[in-house]
Design a protein around this nucleic acid. Structure first.
Lengths: 149, 149
DNA sequence: GAATTTTAGTTGCATTATGAAACCAAAATG
DNA sequence: CATTTTGGTTTCATAATGCAACTAAAATTC
């Protein structure tokens, strides 16, 4: 691929996020982590990813602070990968992706998974609101630049 | 890269979304589109993407129904790329990515852009709630399988 | 209205990221 | 203590990407 152009310097936060976790596999790994997968072999089985690529992605995600390794059992060499608090903050991204998929990428009646509240079993919803709680869409918003102080 | 494994058959809606738009460039193109970029050359300048790759991505995004081409002027051969209603439904994904980036990928005081409500100039917020409006996080949710009917 | 520039690509080539498979050491299991 | 599982690393072939050069049509300038 030739070293992909980094957008680190970009002042757009979405671009930086994509730089950090916008790789196809990374996001799927994070999705699996929210589904309580923690072991190398389980990620590998779940995703069908090549092991060298999984090694690489996990290392990068740990480096970036999305995952942390925790020793498993009393052994020192064996670890599990779990989301850091920063990693858990990707939850809305996953929910937004899920919601888009549910709405547009399934046939009516087709089998799929659904994210529900534990207690009630009711589906959760995600929405974008103004400070005072009114729902708002893209047309009602605009980007402004916050200068460095 | 060797044909990347498709997850189309996956019943997880997030995986399907990533299959449709989870490519690094595609999401950046969509981000630019929300920033009112519509022309080939403007995408190219904004992203610094190679032109053949941009051609490929735009074609794929049109095929998948995220973008549509609209003829520009009275000419037939020149087109603009604009988000379809389906494409605009990616707004929450972009906002979620943006929110994550703002929170974790900028130094305090560093220059960045901010998404605000047009009328009030106040930042918008995104949150995940239960049906009856209580905020909820990953720990309070669980995935269930909706069988085909 | 002819010349020039811009737009929106296409083509060819070099390089890199990826995937598959083989291999391996340490830990767990029987 | 023999075998299997886990968590990788290495090697190699190939596809995806980026870069630069090229092009035809449209837009603009002179």
């Amino acid at each position: 691929m030739v070293a992909r152009r980094r957008l680190k310097g970009d002042y757009c936060p979405s671009a930086r996020s994509l730089d950090a976790i916008g790789d196809w596999w990374s996001l799927l790994i994070v999705r699996d982590a929210f589904d309580d997968i923690r072991r190398f072999s389980d990620f590998q089985k779940s995703l069908g990813i090549a092991k060298n690529i999984l090694t690489d992605r996990l290392r990068a995600l740990v480096e970036r602070g999305i995952f942390e390794t925790v020793p498993v059992g009393e052994a020192k060499a064996r670890v599990e990968y779990q989301l850091t608090p920063m990693g858990r903050d990707l939850f809305p991204v996953m929910v937004a992706l899920r919601q888009f998929g549910e709405r547009h990428l399934f046939q009516p009646g087709e089998e799929h998974s659904l994210l529900v509240e534990k207690e009630t079993g009711l589906p959760v919803k995600l929405d974008i609101r103004t400070q005072d709680g009114r729902p708002i869409d893209a047309a009602g918003t605009v980007l402004v630049k916050v200068p460095e102080e």
